[in-house]
Amino acid sequence: MSGENTVREIGHDEFDPYGTLALILIYFAILSVMWVFMYFVEFLGNDLTVLA
């Protein structure tokens, strides 16, 4: 199905979503860094950790 703005039809086999891959890798990097920051700095660096 093509809208009026379609300038070309792209089928499944000729479509490599490399832009999506790039975006999702950036997301992966952000998540990893933020997780490490939240766990090791914000949480383990916080006062009064419950030890038993």
Binding site: T6, R8, I10, P17, G19, T20, L23, I24
Partner: peptide, 25 residues
């Protein structure tokens, strides 16, 4: 879902003439 949905949107952008690593946005 994040991957599949963004890839579907990218497919739309490319069909609309979008190009490049991020330029399709």
């Amino acid at each position: 879902t994040a991957f599949t949905v963004v890839a579907s949107v990218e497919h739309g952008a490319r069909q609309r003439g979008g190009t490049g690593l991020f330029g399709w946005l």
